[in-house]
Structure formats: C-alpha cells, structure tokens
C-alpha cells in the first residue's frame, strides 16, 4: 500500500464523497478545479494500491486434532 495511514475502503469512501461534491449543493465553481485535482490524485492512488496489494496467508501452527 502506498499510504499505510488509510485503507482502500477509506480511500474509496473519500473518493465517493469527493465526486459527490460535484453534484451537491456545496458545489462552487471557484473550488471545482482544486477539488478535481485532489480527486484525480486519490483515484490514481487507489488504482496503484489495488495493483500492488498482496495477501498474507498464514497456516496456523495449532493442531485441531481431538
């Protein structure tokens, strides 16, 4: 993950909020360009994370025999 501080889910939620802003009542033309740049950067970050993330598979040492 390129940014450990946020999970993919958090980033996806952030992107959803950012893109929803463009359809919301809070939309302002003066802020639109900056918001678009931020959303675009976040989208690229998510794509990068999705491409790089790998799973860690641990086989437990415990025996479950009875």
């Amino acid at each position: 993950m390129s940014k450990q501080s946020k999970t993919i889910e958090e980033k996806m939620n952030e992107l959803r909020e950012m893109t929803a802003w463009f359809e919301s009542e809070e939309f302002s033309l003066t802020e639109a360009a900056d918001k678009f740049k931020q959303a675009n950067a976040l989208a690229k970050d998510i794509e990068k994370d999705l491409g790089e993330l790998r799973n860690t598979v641990n086989e437990l040492k415990q025996s479950f025999e009875t």
């Binding site: 994370d49 790089e52 993330l53 790998r54 799973n55 860690t56 598979v57 641990n58 437990l60 479950f64």
Partner: peptide, 8 residues
C-alpha cells in the same frame, strides 16, 4: 489483496 488470511 492487502488481507491477512489465517488458515486452520
């Protein structure tokens, strides 16, 4: 990806 998978 990005998950921890513990296998019993």
């Amino acid at each position: 990806g990005g998950m921890t998978i513990d296998v019993a």
